[in-house]
Design a protein around this nucleic acid. Structure first.
Ligand SMILES: [Mn+2]
Ligand SMILES: [Mn+2]
Ligand SMILES: [Zn+2]
Ligand SMILES: [Zn+2]
Lengths: 158, 158
DNA sequence: GTCTAATTAATAATTATTACTATTTAGGAA
DNA sequence: TTCCTAAATAGTAATAATTATTAATTAGAC
């Protein structure tokens, strides 16, 4: 019990340290947003996080939430999910992972696969660019959508 | 000379075939958009394509261009670039490839690397999902931005 | 405690994307 | 070929998402 709490505190303090390193002031708003984000599941939009925070912090402004989330992404506390031109979604999962995306329902699912974390970087890329992160997205049709998926589009011989 | 032209025609005719297979009517607008897209470099937005088409087709509407591009993406003529919540960008490059993205200037560069095309799919994903496409995104800082990149952010011992 | 630059709330403004509707048209049938 | 109809388009309008503005507040340095 005590141990669990102290681990949580350590994680939290680490983020506070990051704030300071990045010369960001520690404001009640940022704390509230950080806490909300750390307890979020899935890939929430700024609006979703805003709505949850409003319950405990009724007069926070949307702009502050959005701006802060982008700031968090900047300093590496958060990630932004790779999308296809829809609303921006944030990723509070700090463990190294990758995504499956369903082309039908746009569901985005985390998965873990170490092989993908340590892919070899092609030489010509290595020369020109300083690579910080490898993202793999597996795209297809999810189990829930597969049944309603038109058979004409199935990989079958013509 | 003749050969080059005939190859181009074959490519074009293939797309027309796709139209028909998908029960899409062959309209002058769709032809114009297809031609514009096939001759596009990089990763244009709907607006960019719209502006180019307007020169030869002055009263085409933006909605038609945008809608058609999405339709093209649907039937697999085009791809949509994985973004981070900014304007949607299309990908006319039909060769199997992957992307490098610069975190500073948002530059997106194509690269080819066969190893990435045939990555192994983890078993638990294979069971639940029907994977159609593997995308790898290498994220980092590009050569043009590296010089202006704050040295404090460089991977060095503290 | 004082001071100042950073941050915020509360908008407003701008973009981006999608929806609506009267009109036109592609393509199949007669 | 001509006729017919569902699909597609032009020309907006509406909505949604993102960013900007500004006066007021405040965190943190001194
Ligand atoms: Mn994730
Ligand atoms: Mn590309
Ligand atoms: Zn699905
Ligand atoms: Zn760059």
């Amino acid at each position: 019990m005590i141990k669990r709490k102290s681990i949580r505190k350590i994680v939290f303090d680490n983020f506070i340290k990051k704030f300071k390193e990045s010369n960001l002031k520690i404001t009640p708003q940022r704390i509230a947003i950080l806490e909300q984000v750390l307890s979020s599941q899935g890939h929430p939009s700024a609006e979703e996080i805003y709505n949850k925070i409003k319950k405990s912090y009724p007069n926070i402004s949307f702009d502050t939430v959005n701006r802060t989330l982008l700031t968090f992404a900047d300093i590496g506390i958060l990630d932004i999910v790779e999308g296809t031109g829809d609303v921006r979604r944030f990723d509070p999962n700090d463990k190294s992972h990758h995504h499956f995306r369903c082309k039908k329902c746009e569901r985005i699912e985390d998965f873990y696969y170490e092989d993908y974390d340590k892919l070899e970087i092609p030489e010509n890329i290595k020369e020109k660019f300083n690579i910080k992160k490898i993202r793999v997205i597996l795209e297809g049709i999810c189990d829930k959508c597969i049944s309603s998926y038109s058979s004409s589009e199935t990989d079958s011989n013509p």
